[in-house]
Amino acid sequence: MISSWVETGIFEFVQLAKFDLHLFDPQMLISAIFFWNRETRAFEFPCGFVCPTLLDIAAITGLAPIGDRFYPDAFEEEISIKETSISWDKKTYLALINAHIGKPGTLVSTSEHIAFLMYWLSFCVFCTPSLQVPKYYYILAQALHLKNKICLSKLLLASLYHCLDEASESLFRESGPQNLSGPLWLLQLWLNAILEKKLSLTSSFAPVCELEGARLTTLTPRKRSINNFAKYIDAILSFGQFSEDLAPFIRTSLIGPSWLRQNNQVWNMAPDSIEMWFGFLFWDVIISGMR
């Protein structure tokens, strides 16, 4: 398991679940979503269109742009859902965990591991609106369990874009906004990165996980004020020209995977680096639907 997970960055990404990814600043998120253009799939800042990219995903989560594209019809159900003893009648995440957690000191069973991966995908990664684990994550969970080389970064990016489309539409609906779902934690961390200097976001906490995402979780503003919304809007409107703040992960002090930090000059690139950057630059169609 470890080898394929390390290669694609999934092993490091799982470590982010140890941090509070669900700590949001609603005013910061809403102020950004107001600038989301559903036609261009980007934030319409004064300097032009800006949006999270695969490079941002890689820096924040450690996920590499390599591996097989995932969508349900492309992967077979190699472990039949009928063969596992997963209890689908559990109505909450806690009930699912309690039903499948193994005894201390025993090996993790196939059902236990797949159940954990489904919980992790539902609650920590894609943040579904359901209060229980949806069955449509089973195929992805069993593919990860079987060490298949999955390109989770592109699937996560597509899910974020889909989430932003729904959030933007919801905010401007006549009946009023509805509860938002999806990987909004990723939007929060990306905003923390691009607004870090403008808003002087700081933290004294030193995360032990060597990922930008772990550090960025500590920058989410915790103090709420009625003036914050206007402050966030002003910060976004101050991007009159494209600056290094909008490309926060192209710097020598970047923490994260070695392949992202190492020397990547064109004339001095290792074969592994070429594969990585080919994954970043190659034109692709990303599908996020799993329902």
Rank of each mutant, 00 (worst) to 15 (best):
G48I: 07
V50N: 01
C51R: 15
P52D: 11
T53H: 08
T53C: 12
L55T: 03
D56E: 13
D56R: 13
A58Q: 11
A59D: 07
I60R: 09
T61G: 13
T61V: 10
G62C: 12
G62D: 10
L63S: 06
P65K: 07
P65Q: 12
I66P: 06
G67I: 04
F70S: 06
P72H: 06
D73E: 15
D73Y: 12
F75Y: 14
F75G: 07
E77M: 14
E78L: 13
E78C: 13
I79H: 10
S80C: 12
K82E: 15
E83F: 02
T84H: 01
S85A: 05
I86E: 00
I86W: 02
S87A: 12
W88V: 02
Y93L: 12
L94I: 11
L96C: 08
L96E: 08
L96M: 11
N98C: 02
A99Q: 09
I101C: 09
G102E: 14
K103P: 00
G105L: 02
G105S: 03
T106W: 05
S109F: 05
S109D: 06
T110W: 00
T110A: 13
T110G: 00
S111V: 10
S111F: 04
E112Y: 04
E112M: 02
E112R: 04
H113K: 14
H113S: 09
H113F: 08
I114F: 04
F116H: 07
F116A: 11
L117C: 06
L117I: 11
M118W: 01
Y119P: 00
W120V: 00
L121H: 07
S122Y: 03
F123V: 01
F123D: 06
F123C: 02
C124H: 14
V125D: 05
C127H: 01
T128E: 03
P129G: 13
S130I: 07
Q132W: 11
Q132H: 10
K135D: 15
K135Y: 05
Y137G: 01
Y137S: 00
Y137Q: 01
Y138Q: 01
I139N: 09
A141N: 09
L146R: 15
L146Y: 06
N148M: 14
K149Y: 05
K149C: 06
K149S: 08
K149G: 03
I150T: 04
I150Y: 14
I150H: 10
C151V: 07
C151R: 14
L152S: 09
L152T: 03
L152Q: 09
L152N: 10
K154Q: 11
L155M: 15
L155D: 03
L156I: 11
L157W: 11
L157N: 10
A158C: 12
S159H: 10
L160M: 04
Y161M: 12
H162T: 11
C163R: 01
L164Q: 02
E166Q: 08
E166S: 04
S168R: 15
E169L: 12
F172R: 13
S175C: 13
G176L: 11
Q178V: 13
Q178H: 11
N179L: 12
N179F: 06
N179V: 09
L180C: 08
L180S: 06
S181L: 03
G182E: 12
G182Q: 06
P183G: 04
P183C: 07
